[in-house]
Amino acid sequence: MRKTDSRTSAAPRRRQDFQNLLTGPTFTAVGVYDAISARAAESAEFSSLLVTGYGVAATYGYPDIGLLSQREVFDATERIVSSTSLPVIADADTGYGGVLNVMRTVEVFEQMGAAAIQIEDQTFPKRCGSMSGKSIIDVDEMRQKVNAAVTARTDASMPIIVRTDALLVSGLEDAIARAVAYEQEGADVILLHGTRSFDEIAECAGHISVPLAVISSESKKSIMARRSEYERAGARLVEFPLSLLFAQATMQQHYAKRLVEETTNRAVADDVMPFDTFTDFMAMNQWRDLEAKWVSATE
């Protein structure tokens, strides 16, 4: 159920939960893009969520090529944070500009109760890391952005996750050099995007002392393996940013086609969540209980 204090009083607990995950075994975060996907992930007992910029862009009808405004991403993140009790990683993309923009972005995400904030070193406008044509900013410019993000937060327990896209742009050596530089500026977690082998993960993990995160997407360019395999290579966090989005698109397209072909919803009724179940899924019983208390108090 959505609570009015979820972005304030719950934030320290969520950040502590995320810190605990970072100091434990390798864990996963699944990408969510709205309240429904967040509830689905929580009901499946994921331990943490990632706001996927790719997914949020898709809900607006756009590809992930930097077309969304900062405000649109803020709004989506706020809805997600308010709909779950899990720690949420906010996707800050490139920070939406220079160092001052980065600082404001961190400030807003922190105020809305994000458990961690993720920022990357692509040029603006950025694009999905799995797309061709990416470019990255100068390492010194990104060092300033990392320092700005770390300086802007008021709660030191909120990790700043810094992603480098250098691996697929300038190679492993540069990616490692950037990982080391970003750690020196205060990054709490390094996210190495574009890993194609466990050797690359192990090599990067061996050069930094902070936790290493990686991304696994449903792409021929990405490793898709069990959590234990990532753990052996040295990754602490594995992000699945696109899995729920692709599943939703696949299922909706499938059922839409069946509805057209069979001209009745009877064809899909047995395969989908019933009305009452979905109503419960959206916490209707809790709202009814709350309403009953207010009605009783008024009477």
Rank of each mutant, 00 (worst) to 15 (best):
Ala90Asn: 06
Asp64Val: 05
Asp75Tyr: 12
Tyr62His: 15
Leu68Asn: 08
Met103Phe: 02
Ala76Leu: 06
Thr52His: 01
Leu68Met: 15
Val99Arg: 09
Ser69Trp: 02
Ala92Leu: 14
Leu100Trp: 10
Val51Tyr: 07
Gly61Phe: 13
Gly66Ile: 09
Val106Lys: 10
Val88Leu: 02
Ala57His: 08
Thr52Glu: 05
Val81Leu: 04
Ser85Val: 04
Val108Gly: 01
Ile65His: 14
Ser83Val: 11
Leu67Pro: 08
Ile65Leu: 15
Ala90Ser: 12
Gly55Gln: 10
Ser85Thr: 12
Ser69Gln: 02
Ser69Asp: 02
Gly95Ile: 02
Val56Asn: 08
Val99Ala: 13
Tyr96Arg: 01
Tyr60Lys: 13
Glu72Cys: 09
Ala76Ser: 15
Ser83Ile: 12
Ser83Trp: 06
Glu107Pro: 07
Thr105Ile: 00
Arg104Ile: 00
Tyr54Gln: 08
Thr52Lys: 01
Thr59His: 13
Thr59Asp: 12
Leu86Val: 00
Val81Gly: 06
Glu72Lys: 02
Ser85Pro: 00
Gly95Arg: 09
Ile65Arg: 15
Ser82Val: 05
Thr105Asp: 04
Ala76His: 10
Asp91Val: 12
Tyr54His: 12
Val106His: 07
Asp75Val: 11
Tyr62Ser: 12
Leu67His: 15
Tyr60Asp: 01
Gly66Phe: 07
Gly97Asn: 05
Ser82Asn: 13
Val73Trp: 02
Val51Ala: 01
